[in-house]
Amino acid sequence: MMVLTLLSLAFANDFRVVGEGDTVESIAEPMADVDAAMIRALNKLEDGEQPIIGMLLQLPELDEHAHQTGYVIALTGTGTLTEPSAAASPLALGAELPAGSTVCTGTGSFATIRLAADGATGGHDDVSLLDDTCVSIRGLSTRPTSRSTTLDLGQGSLSVRAAESLGRMNIVTRDGITTGELGGFRVTLEEEASRTEALYAPVAILGAQTEREVPAGFGGRVSKGEKPTELTPLLPPGKPIRPANGSPLRRHDFAWTAVDRALGFRIEFSTAPDFSELVVVEEIGAVSWKPDFLALPQPARAWWWRISSIDRLGYVGIPSDEQQINEPLPTH
C-alpha cells in the first residue's frame, strides 16, 4: 500500500515524513491553506485513519506555491542530468533541475545543487554530491512558513549544507528516510544500509515504522525493513599541521594530528571556503598525505582543505576548520 502511494506521487512537490506522534491533524494545523481532509484525500487515507511512522505524506499545494526548480551551482568534472521523459545529457554549471529530474556525478566529479529557495528570506537548501552519486528530485516546495526538498538518493553520498533559515530536507533511500530542518548532515548509501551523520544540527532517521532522533555529533544507520541502529558519537577531526594556513602550496604534503580511535581520515579540497565547490576528496589511513600527484583547478582566490576522522564503523566525523592554501605561482 505504501509503495503504491509513493509511486503515484512520484512528481509531487511537498512531502512530510511522518514522525512519532504526528497525526494528519497535527501536520495540517500550522498550515493555513491546508486541512486534514485535503491531506487524507490526497494520500488515500480513510476518514479518521492515521498514517504510519516513516510514511512520506504528500501535502496539497495551492497555485501560489509555484513549483520550484533547482540549479547546479558548482560542478567539478562531469555528470549527467536526466529530466522527466528525456534522455540523459551532460550536466552543466547553471543547469535547471525541475522536480523529477535525476542528477548523477561521474567518478572523481563533484556537484553542488541548490534546491528549495525562499525568495522572501533568502534561505536556500544546498546539497553537495560526492563522486559516483545519483539523486532524483522528488519535490521542491516553498510555503509562507516553510520550504521543503525531498530527494531520492540512488547511489553514493551527499552532504546537506547547514541552512541559514528553516528548510526541511528529506533524503529517501532504499533503506529508510533521513529528515532534518537545519541541514548540516550527510547521508551515504552503503551496500547493506544507509548511513547518516548529523554534523551541525539534529536529524531523524526512520525505518520499519520507527523514528530515531540523531543529535548533532552522532551517526546512525538504517537497513531495509529494519529499525534504525543505536547511535554512535562521531569522532572529532585531526588538527591540521601542515602546510601552514594561508601559505603557497609548494610541497603537496599534508599532515594533521592523530585522533584516538580513528581508523582513517577524509581530506577534502575546495575552491570555496564553505566547501560548496569540492574538487578532490580522498580517504587516507594515516595522519599524513603525501601523494605522488595532485591536480587542482586554479581557483579565483585560493584553495581550502579540511580533515575529518573515520571511525571503525565507517562514520565520517565533523570536519576540521578549513585551511587556506594558495597558488605557488602568481596567476593574477
Binding site: 602550496l249 603537496h252 603525501k290 605522488d292 600527484f293 595532485l294 591536480a295 587542482l296 583547478p297 586554479q298 597558488e327 605557488p328 605561482l329
Partner: peptide
C-alpha cells in the same frame, strides 16, 4: 598539464 589547473608531482 591541464589548462587552468595546477599539477603537483614529486
Amino acid at each position: 598539464v591541464a589548462p587552468e589547473m595546477t599539477t603537483w608531482a614529486r
